[in-house]
Every structure is written in structure tokens, then in C-alpha cells.
């Protein structure tokens, strides 16, 4: 019983109790409040340590829930978990069919900009990432609102709900990336050394989307529209990034969009690793990790701020 007491306390702190009085309503101009919150460095640090220790504590539950999310989706179906492989394969196949076989898009390098591999490899190196991100955004936007009973009816660490959405889509991404790997091996019998950096990129992607997912999930509880906004964004944003085309192919006035879009940097990093085999977009390798880290902390800050109010709306 003593053991249980210790484990129990650590496992499920009576979160929420004592939270409300910690935010006295401040009478301040909204702009200064937002600015203050944005520049509140200690809050970022505490968010980081909080979330990391939380995930460490609940890693068993998180992994189990992730596994469940993957199997839940296909439970009771004839092909079952085979869909985990089929789904990305079919999607990738359709894109390759449309852009490579039907539209016959060709890409060329100019000057020092040499293109080491074919268009299919270029397309897939960005597509494998964004397809997973798309799925991840929609899933995490509903990760809390679809689990009202876990939020309201049991003492449960709901932080892991967006996390498991991210982790489960990371698995899909691994599957689709292994198809890309197979393609490269068959086509070129060799891989660029930069693929060794993929785990690092994947790590930053996961933490970025954990943050993003937490933010979307929190807002999604209050505004159910978020799910639709995010779905549309997922489709539209693919064309606002250099996934299908090269940045050089975008018409001049629209080029800034590619550089403003924070997700472009993630795509460039992946393209460097899969396709170019060199640090073609060196700035992306700085922006992407920093942005990921920022999202991770900022996302959790939003989440822990509003989590206790979820019960009111669900």
C-alpha cells in the first residue's frame, strides 16, 4: 500500500487543485500582456522541464496509448494493421502518378545548384514528411475533445493525448520513409550519407508537433472549427512549401511566402538529408531546430494554462 501511495502520487498528481488562484486576473493592456507572456523566459524553461518529466513519468502509458491508437483505428477490419502500410503507400503512389507520370514535371538546376537525383526522390522526400504532418495536425486537434471521458471522468494525465497522436503518426511516417528508402536503394543502389541525420530531424519534428498539437488540442476544445481549419490548412500548406516544386520555380512575388512559412525549413532539412546529400539549405538547419524547440515549450505553456478549464466545455 505504501508503494502504491508513492507511485500513485507521482503517477497522478492532483493536478488542478490549487491552480485557479495562481492566475489572478490581471488588469493590463492585452498587447503588453501578450508580449510579456511571449518573453517570459523562466516560463519556457519550466514548461520544458515539466513536460519532459511528465513524459518520462508516463512513458509506459504513452507508449501503450500510442500502440492502441494505431491498432484502434483498424480494429475489427479485415486487413487490420496492414492498413498502416497500405495507407501511406497508396497516397504516395497517387502523388507520384499525378506529378511524375501524368504531369511529367522535370526539375533542373542552374549554375552551382546541381540536382543529384530524380524528381520522384525530390517529391517523396518532402511528401513523406508533410503527409504525416497533415494527419498529425487533424488528429491532435481533436485529441482532447474526442476523449471527453478521459478528461472528465478519471484522474488522467491528459497531456499524453496530443503526444500519442504525434507519436502514432510518426510511426506512419517511418513506414512511408522506408518506402522512400527502398526506392532510393533500387534506383541508385546508394544513399547519401546525410540520411544518418534523419533521426535528429525526426526528433525535432516530433517535439515541434507535440507543441503544435497541444496548442491545437487546447483551442480545439473550445472551438470545434479548429479541426476543419487544420484539415484545410494541411492540404493548402503543401502547395505553399517547396514540396512539389523547387523554390526557384515559384513566381517572384510569391517567393517570400516560402520563406515566411515556418514549415518550409523543416521540408528543406529533410530534402537536404534525402535528396541533396549536402547542407544545401544551411539556414534551415538553424531555423528548424530552434522553431521546434520554441513550439514545444510554447505549446505546452498554452496547454497547461487552459487544461483545467477543459472540463467546463466538454
Amino acid at each position: 500500500m505504501n508503494r502504491r501511495a508513492v507511485v500513485g502520487c507521482r503517477a497522478f498528481p492532483a493536478a488542478g487543485n490549487g491552480l485557479a488562484e495562481r492566475f489572478p486576473r490581471e488588469e493590463q493592456e492585452p498587447e503588453t500582456m501578450i508580449l510579456k507572456a511571449l518573453l517570459n523566459i523562466p516560463a519556457y524553461r519550466s514548461a520544458f522541464t515539466n513536460l519532459v518529466s511528465l513524459l518520462r513519468q508516463h512513458r509506459e502509458l504513452t507508449l501503450e496509448m500510442t500502440k492502441r491508437e494505431l491498432t484502434d483505428r483498424y480494429a475489427g477490419q479485415v486487413l487490420g494493421t496492414l492498413w498502416v502500410l497500405m495507407h501511406p503507400l497508396l497516397l504516395m503512389g497517387v502523388y507520384v502518378f499525378v506529378f511524375v507520370a501524368v504531369m511529367k514535371i522535370k526539375i533542373e538546376g542552374e549554375g552551382t545548384f546541381t540536382l543529384p537525383r530524380d524528381y520522384t526522390a525530390y517529391l517523396l522526400s518532402g511528401l513523406t514528411v508533410w503527409l504525416a504532418c497533415q494527419e498529425c495536425l487533424t488528429k491532435s486537434a481533436t485529441s482532447i475533445s474526442s476523449q471527453a471521458n478521459l478528461v472528465k471522468q478519471v484522474v488522467f494525465p491528459i497531456e499524453i493525448l496530443p503526444v500519442r497522436s504525434v507519436l502514432s503518426t510518426a510511426v506512419t511516417q517511418l513506414v512511408s520513409m522506408s518506402f522512400l528508402l527502398i526506392y532510393l536503394l533500387i534506383r541508385y543502389q546508394a544513399l547519401p550519407w546525410t540520411v544518418l541525420l534523419l533521426p535528429v530531424l525526426l526528433f525535432f519534428q516530433v517535439i515541434q508537433f507535440i507543441g503544435l498539437g497541444m496548442m491545437l488540442a487546447s483551442v480545439g476544445v473550445y472551438l470545434r472549427d479548429v479541426k476543419d481549419v487544420v484539415t484545410v490548412f494541411g492540404v493548402v500548406n503543401m502547395y505553399l512549401m517547396p514540396v512539389i516544386y523547387l523554390p526557384a520555380m515559384a513566381p517572384g512575388p510569391f517567393k517570400p511566402i516560402l520563406y515566411i512559412n515556418p514549415f518550409s525549413y523543416m521540408i528543406w532539412c529533410y530534402q537536404d538529408a534525402w535528396y541533396f546529400g549536402r547542407f544545401e539549405h544551411w539556414y534551415a538547419w538553424i531555423v528548424y531546430p530552434l522553431f521546434s524547440l520554441f513550439m514545444f515549450m510554447a505549446g505546452y505553456r498554452v496547454f497547461r494554462r487552459v487544461r483545467i478549464f477543459f472540463g467546463n466545455v466538454l
Binding site: 493536478a15 487543485n17 478521459l150 478519471v154 484522474v155 478549464f309
Partner: peptide
């Protein structure tokens, strides 16, 4: 149980809590 916020007052809880406010949370028919 800590699943809902309070408007005013103090709640102090000593020890680990388990709450069954509903049966069957986490159960999946398949």
C-alpha cells in the same frame, strides 16, 4: 478528482486519488 476547475475556495487532498466517475473509460469494444 481534479478534472474540473473551481471558481473559489480551497481544496486540499493528501494522498493518491483514483476516481471512477464513469465506468468503462478506456474500454474499446473491438
Amino acid at each position: 478528482a481534479g478534472t474540473l476547475d473551481k471558481t473559489a475556495g480551497d481544496v486540499d487532498i493528501q494522498g493518491s486519488i483514483a476516481a471512477i466517475l464513469e465506468l468503462g473509460t478506456g474500454f474499446h469494444p473491438e
